[in-house]
Design a protein around this nucleic acid. Structure first.
Length: 728
DNA sequence: AGGGACGGTCTTTTT
DNA sequence: GACCGTCCCT
């Protein structure tokens, strides 16, 4: 029976893992099936050991990973798994706080979670209103970063020892920030972890309760845990220490937000009886990809030596391509995917384009849009980050939590209803006099309109808004979530506010419709559950599974995913490795791991792409190819040469993946034979349309003079210019 | 109070 | 080139 459950491991490993009781660490390379091992372990515990699912705590890195884990386990068990605690660290902590916070912390169980923009708004108010500082000299983001770093290390204001004047200020802001969060009945992302850990650490009764609750704790992507998360695991796992963690130091890419892969080493010290397993066989990629990736990662020092290998086929060469600039890079990607699809070499949905920074996605999106081909994108402008969505969520949060001054500030005059800055300030002053929150003060206007200190237009506007809020609050128990949201939209005139006649307005309104649809899924749940979930979704979580189109995503977002075909773009110095990571050895090592993670996402085809020239900050920059490319043995790579396709905008409308005719790629020799005649109309990616004046051979290349309509006469090298012949 | 125009400032990566 | 804050005009 056991061998059945653990079918994916080799016999020796299966036997070892099956017999496990104490703490265990599985160091698993990419594509070694570590997620599968975790799922099998869970299935084993439930089926063979009779552990009830509700006694299991399994922590994954994203909600998407959690969903996949659930599916795997349910497949293995051939039944639904009910009651298991399965989710991210943040969701787990939110759940604990949802039950315990009210009794032990200065917030209620109905607390809300502040996301980054909420934090920023709150911090700005603290600096300006509370401390009377200039937010130019003291950027809110800097304080938030400093506080975030402290929280990741579990440093609370009462134990923080400032070492400089600067630190003194940080401490003052930190204290005030925590007070204001509490006054808003809110916690920020980091607090979810910190407050949960403190709660367990300082209250033996709570700790015991949860320790008894969880018979086994399992953690995925352990290399990316921070100090707070590590403490949480330690606290909960004791005294049984039935801990099963899976990770890979080489894939640690979140050091900048407090993750510390040395937690792996710490684990060995803290649990002397820790059993360690190495999973070195890769079941995902071709030999060429694995060999290349290993060459890249092996240059990092201070790592547990791991000899990644695969028994998969050798596979085709990795393909290296130099694009002239980022536009051609993008075009090459689109054209190559189109060609692969047309030749039946790949499914569109099995292709992914990965980049270091989100800013790089723009050019890529442009190329897909111009080619009229669908794509999926992770992150970029997040759905929940959009203005219209944030506005409406702020209304819902305000209905849910009267104390949320940040949401109140956001919507009190959105859409414009005649409540200007002056009026808001007067309202805040009045609230302060009453010793009440702004939200409570508003409520008082409805209860006792006679006592209102406001007059004239401001009075009417404020009372009207307060009445709206009160109205929604009074019905929220009885009305389903989608209906509540529709009420808000109707009664605020939000639709008319968005629809300003522009295309963007229409798009925003469509997003609102989408939000209404989303709330329908939470119809039966309390408002708080909905608000919590939308705050804790990660970027990858929003990836549509059922669309057969290529995926665009950052290297960070790519962690844990795999694709048949992977394009790594922007492989240039100052992009990867990133400029800001180049003068620190630790950071540089992390950039290398990022490259490694990207490479090992690919099953069969790996394209490595860099651009000769790239526009950044409005100007051209010539970055040399990434140093990491130099670490890949030449024998594994073949160079794609020639045009990176043409930039035209002329594809017929309505084109879908697969319906496009195969496109012949001009190879290297084609360049020299391309000839231009005087009088020909040509199209240039930057200069637009023009007419060829003269064309002559110049060494290996062809030099063309073109008179452009907008840019005048230019002399261009054919191999770089990538002119498209329009006629003649 | 509100809207439009302008100028300065950034972007690493994210739960 | 995108977003924010400020200023100025209505």
């Amino acid at each position: 029976m056991a061998s059945d459950v653990l079918a994916g491991l080799n016999t020796q490993q299966a036997a070892a893992v099956t017999a496990l009781d104490g703490p265990a660490l599985v160091l698993a390379g990419p594509g070694s099936g570590k997620t599968r091992v975790l799922a099998q372990r869970i299935a084993y515990l439930v089926r063979e050991r009779g552990v009830p699912p509700r006694a299991l705590l399994a922590v994954t890195f994203t909600n998407k990973a959690a969903r996949e884990m659930r599916t795997r386990v349910e497949t293995l068990l051939a039944e639904k798994v009910v009651g298991m605690w399965l989710g991210t660290f943040h969701a787990t902590c939110a759940r604990i706080l949802r039950r315990e916070a009210g009794a032990y912390l200065p917030i209620t169980n109905e607390y809300v979670i502040f996301d980054e923009s909420d934090q920023l708004a709150l911090m700005k108010s603290i600096i300006r209103d509370d401390l009377n500082l200039d937010d130019k000299v003291n950027p809110p983001a800097r304080f938030l970063n400093a506080i975030g770093a402290l929280k990741n290390d579990l440093v609370t204001p009462d134990v923080y020892v400032p070492a400089s004047y600067r630190d003194e200020l940080v401490l003052r802001v930190y204290e005030r920030y925590q007070e204001r969060l509490a006054a808003n009945n809110a916690v920020d992302f980091d607090d979810l972890l910190v407050q949960a850990v403190l709660l367990l650490r300082d209250h033996a009764a709570v700790l015991t309760k949860y320790q008894h609750m969880f018979a086994h704790i399992l953690v995925d992507e352990f290399q990316d845990t921070n100090a707070a998360q590590y403490q949480l695991v330690r606290l909960l796992a004791a005294p049984r220490n039935n801990l099963f963690v899976v990770g890979d130091e080489d894939q640690s890419i979140y050091r900048w937000r407090g993750a510390d892969y040395r937690n792996v080493l710490r684990l060995r010290e803290d649990y002397p009886d820790l059993q360690t397993y190495l999973l070195e066989q890769n079941y995902r990629s071709t030999q060429r990809i694995i060999t290349a990736a290993r060459e890249v990662i092996d240059r990092n020092r201070h790592r547990t030596p791991k000899a990644l290998f695969t028994e998969n086929e050798e596979g085709p060469s990795l393909i290296l391509y130099e694009a002239h600039n980022e536009a051609f890079e993008a075009q090459y990607v689109v054209d190559t995917i189109a060609a692969l699809v047309a030749q039946g070499e790949a499914e569109p949905g099995e292709c992914a384009v990965m980049y270091r920074t989100n800013a790089q996605s723009r050019t890529l999106e442009d190329a897909f849009i111009r080619a009229n081909l669908p794509y999926r994108i992770v992150g970029a402008t997040r759905f929940y980050g959009r203005r219209e969505i944030k506005d409406l969520l702020a209304y819902l949060r305000l209905i849910h939590n009267t104390e949320d001054s940040v949401s109140l500030g956001r919507v009190i005059n959105t859409p414009p209803r005649g409540i200007g800055d002056k009026t808001v300030q007067a309202l805040q002053a009045w609230a302060a006099d009453l010793g009440a929150s702004t939200g409570q003060a508003l409520h008082r206007l409805v209860e006792a309109p006679g006592g209102s200190p406001f007059s004239g237009r401001a009075r009417g506007a404020l009372h009207g808004f307060a009445a709206l809020l009160d109205g929604w609050r009074s019905v929220r128990e009885r009305v389903a979530l989608p209906d509540l949201l529709r009420m808000v939209i109707d009664e605020t005139g939000y639709e008319a506010y968005l629809k300003d006649g522009s295309e963007q307005g229409e798009e925003r309104w469509e997003n609102v419709q989408e939000l209404i649809n989303l709330t329908a899924e939470y119809e039966d749940l309390p408002l708080s559950s909905f608000l919590e979930e939308v705050t804790l979704v990660s970027d990858v979580d929003t990836l549509q599974e059922d669309v057969n189109a290529p995926t665009l995503l950052t290297l960070h977002a790519a962690k844990g995913l795999e694709f048949d075909v992977v394009f790594l773009v922007g492989l240039e110095e100052s992009i990867l490795p990133h400029q800001r990571s180049m003068d620190d050895e630790e950071q540089l090592a992390e950039e290398r791991r990022l490259m490694y993670v990207g490479m090992t996402r690919a099953r069969r085809l790996l394209y490595l792409i860099y651009a000769f020239s790239r526009t950044a900050w409005g100007e051209q920059r010539l970055n040399p190819p990434s140093r990491f490319l130099g670490d890949i043995p030449e024998g594994l790579v073949s160079m794609a040469r020639g045009y990176g396709g043409t930039i035209s905008g002329r594809q017929p409308a309505g084109m879908q993946w697969g319906s496009r005719p195969p496109r012949a790629y001009p190879q290297e020799e084609d360049i020299s034979t391309v000839s231009y005649r005087a009088g020909q109309r040509v199209l240039h990616p930057r200069f637009g349309e023009g007419i060829v004046i003269e064309s002559r051979k110049s060494g290996e290349d062809v030099e063309v003079s073109v008179a452009f309509e907008g840019a005048g006469i230019k002399r261009l090298l054919a191999s770089f210019a990538n002119l498209e012949v329009l006629d003649g």
